[in-house]
Design a protein around this nucleic acid. Structure first.
Length: 665
RNA sequence: GCCCGAAUAGCUCAGCUGGUCAGAGCAACCGCCUUGUAAGCGGUAGGUCGUCGGUUCGAAUCCGACUUCGGGCUCCA
């Protein structure tokens, strides 16, 4: 077999012996752990064929990391079955930043179990077990995996293509394969149904860590049994893993729930109930600044302000369809005004009142309160409207998922002709405003019709979706499709913003609605005297104010730009004698609306600095004899830098200017 | 809603297998002290150990239910 075959390696043509493997091509580069042949990822052990186009896959590439993580998941599963003989295997795919593997075990795993499993995994890795691919027939696979009920189920699904998250990692659309983990002596230590590819050996796992255990439904459905899922992470180097762990630690430091307590912004009193926040004075300042600025911008953009109640009779939500579609997400009704006679018979039927989960029906009633002319469209109604949603108990989370929240909600009623222009303006308005709050890295998501859940005519959907897509494309931002992600009543664009450490948050949504104008029979009189139906646009910019406070807190790590800082300036006297001087400076700042405090406590100057620093106050103004004699103050900024002997008027001007321009410092 | 874990002073946490175990630091309050960029010193006060029930001679500690929180799953108009 000295025949030669011709292949293309990383773009360059080469001749190799027939029977050569991808491993032979990249033997001198240990960072290559798999290959891509003609677009398919394959093991390095794969034999090459004439004409193959081969690319190396480095362990630090996206594909390489996924393979690394998938292989690490296998090692975890092997360790689990070695330590817990009766554990049945679910699936174990790579995910962003790591992997998981699901197991059916009699007893849930404990944190100590994770430690033992990590040790066992280390042993397996040290043994340098080879991942060996072996094609099998369906029947062979069934015979070999007779003890693995979940795997058998997957075999039955083969070809049904990816209806379960992660399942496609185990069984592809083509032939089935089993991966044997082979010890150096040739003994098969373990095996798993898997499509691969895998690392050459377990020794190719440079760094991994088991992170946590959690319950997870088999194949993602509530109706299925719940398995125990172990999450882990794996990286191409110890350094890369440490960086990842550092990133997690940084996210933890920024956690708005923690900062909310430390900075005295808000809390969630148990007495009120899950998912219901109260804002303390400092959080109140922050929120008020956010709201005030938003109001001003909305005024400038031609919005009119409306106010509506928090509860309503059921009838409103019967008309709107909310009780049909979303009743389980609503707080249960309050039954009012029922009267009974002495025998307990109903004498007067009561009424059900609901807390509102959305503001739109109320705004619609305002629209419908009188006849409307095309001349007054687009009609833009804005409200900071509080809504209540009965979120399932397990999903409530800080300020980002609550049961009571205030939306910066607007509804725009427009003619079909004007829709496009209105949407284009709206998108610019939304992005501009978000930028003023300090978010400036966006992409857009276009959620289109869910074929199983929608109302309205296809033709209207298509036209609206096209319009949204055109407007989104014209913005120049990246547009990510979200097929089937639309609400039943219309397509939407959502603005996704990346924060300071690269996490994305869904912020604003701009949503078209063909349903409610129909259900409420909204009309306007057109120029030709005919009655026309307006199109309705829902849009919330912050999503909810609570959530936006949470996002901004994490984005800024609590160090808000001066205009949003609850306390903008703290005056710190070197000694008590310098207090009067700082009081004068503070008075000047207050004349300009600056939120300033002078720290007259008994603490020493150093301690006062520490206190202000921990509260992330943007400006510390110190004054001692030198400053007082010169009519000056000395700045200390949050980064620890200082600027000494600044004349008071200059200092005031600097601060006032930064607040006015809403810059971060 | 489901699985797992957690709940001790305003905050962060100690308190091992039930028997001086109700503690520490910070914060608060009261004194004393005070001159240049992240903690001066001393003292005082604070908790029915999330709630309710059970086991026990005895429960912060063991068991159950509930509440709330955390991590996931599912969900997110």
């Amino acid at each position: 077999m000295s025949d030669q075959i011709r292949i293309v390696v990383a773009g360059a043509e080469r001749q190799v012996d027939a029977g050569a493997t991808a491993a032979d091509l990249f033997a001198d580069d240990p960072t290559v752990i798999a290959a891509r042949i003609g677009g398919d990822l394959v093991d390095l052990a794969r034999a090459l064929r004439d004409g193959d186009k081969v690319e190396p896959v480095e362990i630090s590439s996206d594909d390489g990391r996924a393979i690394l993580r998938h292989s690490t998941a296998h090692v975890l599963a092997q360790a689990v079955q070695e330590l817990f003989g009766d554990a049945k295997l679910g699936i174990g795919p790579p995910v962003e930043n790591g992997f998981y593997y699901d197991f059916d075990v009699a007893e849930p795993f404990t944190p100590e179990d994770l430690k033992h499993l990590e040790k066992q995994m280390q042993r397996i890795i040290k043994e340098r077990q080879q991942f060996v691919r072996r094609p099998v027939s369906d029947d062979e696979a069934r015979a070999e995996l007779a003890d693995e009920p979940y795997k058998l189920e997957l075999i039955g699904l083969k070809g049904g293509a990816g209806d379960a998250e992660g399942a496609s990692v185990e069984v592809g659309a083509g032939e089935l394969t089993i991966y044997d983990n082979v010890r150096r002596g040739g003994e098969v230590a373990w095996k798993d149904l898997c499509r691969g590819p895998h690392l050459p050996t377990t020794k190719n796992i440079p760094a991994f860590k088991l992170m946590r255990v959690a319950g997870a439904y088999w194949r993602g459905s509530e109706k299925n049994p719940q398995l125990q899922r172990i999450y882990g992470t794996a990286w191409e180097s110890k350094e890369a893993q440490q960086e990842y762990l550092d990133r997690l630690a940084e996210a933890e430091r920024r956690d708005h729930r923690k900062l909310g307590t430390e900075l005295d912004l808000f809390s969630f009193p148990e007495e009120i109930g899950s998912g219901l926040a109260v804002f303390h004075p400092k959080g109140g300042v922050l929120r008020k600044e956010m709201e005030d600025y938003s109001r001003r911008r909305h005024e400038d953009a031609g919005y009119e302000f409306v106010y509506t109640p928090h509860i309503t009779k059921a009838n409103l939500f019967e008309i709107s369809g909310h009780l049909d579609w979303y009743a389980e997400g609503m707080y249960p009704p309050m039954h009012m005004d029922e009267e009974r006679d002495a025998d307990g018979n109903v004498r007067k039927a009561g009424q059900d009142y609901y807390l509102k989960p959305m503001n739109c029906p109320f705004h619609i009633l305002i629209y419908r309160s009188r006849g409307r002319s095309y001349r007054e469209l687009p009609l833009r109604m804005f409200e900071f409207g509080s809504v209540y949603r009965y979120e399932k108990s397990g999903v409530v989370h800080g300020l980002t998922r609550v049961r009571g929240m205030t939306q910066d909600d607007a509804h725009i009623f427009t003619t079909a002709e004007r829709m496009r222009e209105e949407l284009a303006d709206l998108l610019i308005f939304v992005l501009d405003l978000l930028k003023d709050y300090g978010l400036d890295d966006f992409y857009l998501e276009l959620s289109t019709k869910n074929p199983d859940k929608y109302v309205g005519e296809d033709e209207v959907w298509d036209r609206a979706t096209d319009t949204l897509r055109e407007v989104a494309t014209a913005s120049g931002l990246e547009l990510v499709p979200d097929p089937g992600g639309a609400a039943f009543y219309g397509p939407k664009i959502s603005v996704q913003a990346k924060d300071a450490i690269g996490r994305t948050w869904q912020m604003s949504t701009i949503q078209l609605d063909f349903n409610l104008p129909e259900l409420f029979e909204l009309e306007y009189t057109a120029a030709d005297g005919s009655r026309q139906r307006p199109i309705m646009i829902h849009r919330a910019l912050f999503g909810s104010i609570e959530r936006f406070v949470g996002v901004l807190t994490e984005h800024y790590a609590g160090a808000f730009p001066p205009w949003l800082s609850p306390v903008q300036v703290v005056g710190i006297p070197i000694a008590d004698d310098h207090v009067p001087h700082l009081d004068q400076v503070a008075a000047k700042l207050r004349e300009h609306g600056v939120r300033v405090e002078v720290d007259t406590s008994d603490d020493r100057m150093q301690k006062k600095i520490r206190t202000a620093q921990k509260q992330k106050v943007p400006y510390m103004l110190l004054a001692g004899d030198d400053d007082v004699s010169k009519g000056a103050v000395s700045f200390r900024y949050r980064d620890g830098s200082q600027k000494n002997g600044v004349p008071v008027d200059d200092a005031v001007a600097e601060i006032v200017d930064a607040v006015r321009r809403r810059v971060q410092i």
